[in-house]
Design a protein around this nucleic acid. Sequence first.
DNA 1: TTATAACCGAACACATTGTTCCGAAACAAG
DNA 2: CTTGTTTCGGAACAATGTGTTCGGTTATAA
Lengths: 169, 169
Amino acid sequence: MELILEKGYEAVTVTDLINRANVGRSTFYAHFTDKQDVLFSNLDELSGLLRLAPASRPGTLFAFSLPMFEHLHEQRRLARALLGRRGGSAVMARGEQILATVVRDELLAALPPRSTPPDSLDLMVTCVVGAFMALLRKWADGELTATPAEMDAAFRAVVTPGVETAFRR
Amino acid sequence: MELILEKGYEAVTVTDLINRANVGRSTFYAHFTDKQDVLFSNLDELSGLLRLAPASRPGTLFAFSLPMFEHLHEQRRLARALLGRRGGSAVMARGEQILATVVRDELLAALPPRSTPPDSLDLMVTCVVGAFMALLRKWADGELTATPAEMDAAFRAVVTPGVETAFRR
DNA sequence: TTATAACCGAACACATTGTTCCGAAACAAG
DNA sequence: CTTGTTTCGGAACAATGTGTTCGGTTATAA
């Protein structure tokens, strides 16, 4: 994390890592195969937060949004290191996958089964996830200064009307 | 382009390039500074298309959308090489910048001046651009099969109601 | 005390980058 | 055709990074 914050994920080398960690080169390669392996081995806790959130506010679409922004606000340093432009695209890509399945399930549950063809559902999911991730990245990078509540409100303000319009068909 | 399609942008080396192009190493570095330089030197035509589109359909929000999808449909191979996941993030990042200013100007022109605070405008622009770019990337990657018209419709269906709701305040 | 496992770090082969240098080729003008 | 200029080709080079191997050292636990 220190190194990513200093130089950005791409620029961090294995040599940097083992120097900073006071670890032998062979030791590193005995535990990890890659630079990426180090990153991903600490990344599975994320899924939990996203899946837990909807239950806390039943009936609300995209309930993951506010808790997510709040969580990342508390872990600002970490969020910036991993999600910002300097963090490389690996973590964002993984988060996008996870979020996509969450949003998809949420829409399927809220949507009357045959009101929307599945293709069109995928398009909608992509839009929603794309908008959210874009907000997330810019926020983590400090390009947007807003409270978690404001971020959540903006996200929902843009996305919800369009989704609900699709509901009424 | 051949090399990007074969191995993905990240994996293409300068050595690959000069071999494929039958060009001396020194000749390459006499013309370009970087791998990235080769890419960006062929990328400024894009801006034109985006700025031209709104004039053709006055009054329509996000008029760039349909022409953009149509253009990329014609240049499918190229689009996939540059915009897909294997194309790296450089081109997408550049496109995102360009598109953001276009969307921002479009919203400022359509929006009554003091109806929305500028901070909130940035959030909205980010959402809109994020949704569009996400659609673009997945489409270029072949993860979504839809006609340009369908892509445009889906984009506008999700985004427009939210934006127009913000107008009426 | 001793056996087992984990670690350290030097050394290595390999790949990639960006620079330098000199001879060869292309080209334009006379 | 010749000459002078510009561009090109490619070998060689120093730097930096990667992933592997191996012999010696340290920690751990029985």
